[in-house]
Simulated assay, not measured.
Amino acid sequence: MDTANVIDIATLALGLAAKLAAPLLITALVVGFTVSLLQSVTQIQEITLSFVPKAIGVAVAIVLCGSWMISELVVTTHELFDRIPGLLGG
């Protein structure tokens, strides 16, 4: 296994991690920004007011995107398993 294969697998793993984390992070960002804007307009500074909506938003994002995330993981795992003979030189 040469360095090109290692770099290719590492790039694949980092791309997959970014692709799987994006829906959750974007949801938390949008909900957090909305709640922060609401807090600054109403001047209500409550910690749970910012945490609970983000937790609910991320949970909804997991429910909505969960099957897609699992299928992406399965496809990538199958792709890596298919590469094993070529990586071992056979």
Rank of each mutant, 00 (worst) to 15 (best):
Ile9Asn: 03
Val41Pro: 02
Glu46Leu: 04
Ile26Lys: 04
His78Pro: 04
Gly32Asn: 01
Leu24Trp: 04
Leu12Asn: 06
Leu80Pro: 01
His78Leu: 13
Ala28Asn: 05
Ser50Leu: 13
Leu20Asp: 01
Val31Pro: 01
Arg83Val: 02
Ser50Val: 12
Ile70Arg: 09
Leu38Gln: 08
Ser40Gly: 08
Val30Lys: 08
Leu16Ser: 06
Ile84His: 03
Ala13Ile: 10
Val6Ile: 14
Leu24Asp: 00
Ser50Met: 13
Asp82Asn: 14
Asn5Gly: 10
Glu72Ile: 07
Leu73Cys: 10
Gly66Gln: 11
Val35Met: 02
Ile70Tyr: 13
Val52Asn: 01
Leu87His: 01
Ser36Cys: 06
Ile62Ala: 10
Gly86Phe: 12
Ser50Tyr: 06
Leu88Cys: 05
Ala59Gly: 09
Leu64Ala: 11
Asn5Ile: 15
Glu46Gly: 04
Thr77Gly: 08
Thr11Leu: 13
Ile70Asn: 07
Thr77Phe: 10
Thr76Asp: 05
Leu88Pro: 04
Val31Gly: 00
Glu79Trp: 15
Asn5Cys: 09
Val30Arg: 09
Thr76Pro: 02
Gln43Ser: 06
Gly57Leu: 01
Ile56Arg: 05
Leu29Thr: 12
Phe51Cys: 06
Ser50Ile: 13
Ala10Thr: 13
Val75Ile: 15
Val58Trp: 03
Ser71Lys: 15
Glu72Lys: 04
Gly32Trp: 00
Thr42Val: 09
Ile7Asn: 08
Trp68Ile: 12
Pro53His: 02
Ile44Gly: 01
Gln45Ile: 12
Val74Ile: 15
Thr76Trp: 06
Gly90Val: 15
Met69Leu: 10
Asp82Gln: 14
Val75Cys: 06
Met69Thr: 02
Thr76His: 07
Ser40Ile: 09
Ile44Val: 13
Ala61Ile: 01
Ala22Pro: 02
Ile7Gln: 14
Pro23Gly: 03
Pro53Gln: 03
Gly66Glu: 06
Glu46Cys: 04
Ser50Asn: 11
Thr42Asn: 06
Ala59Asp: 05
Ala55His: 10
Leu87Ser: 00
Gly66Phe: 12
Leu14Gly: 06
Ile26Arg: 02
Ile62Asp: 04
Ile26Val: 13
Ser71Gly: 08
Val30Gln: 09
Ala61Cys: 03
Met69Phe: 10
Phe81Val: 14
Thr48Phe: 08
Ala13Met: 07
Leu24Arg: 03
Glu72Met: 08
Pro85Asn: 05
Leu20Pro: 00
Ala22Ile: 09
Val41Gly: 04
Leu49Ser: 03
Trp68Phe: 13
Val31Ala: 00
Ser71Ile: 14
Arg83Lys: 14
Gly32Met: 00
Leu80Asn: 04
Val58Leu: 05
Leu12His: 10
Phe81Glu: 07
Leu73Pro: 00
Leu25Cys: 05
Lys19His: 10
Asp8Val: 10
Ala13Leu: 07
Lys54Trp: 07
Asp8Met: 09
Thr11Pro: 02
Gly32Lys: 00
Met1Tyr: 11
Val30Pro: 05
Arg83Leu: 05
Leu49Ala: 04
Ile56Trp: 04
Ser71Gln: 15
Leu80Asp: 03
Leu87Trp: 04
Leu29Ile: 13
Thr3Leu: 12
Val63Met: 12
Gly32His: 00
Ile84Gln: 03
Ala4Asp: 11
Ala10Glu: 07
Leu24His: 03
Thr27Asp: 01
Ser67Thr: 15
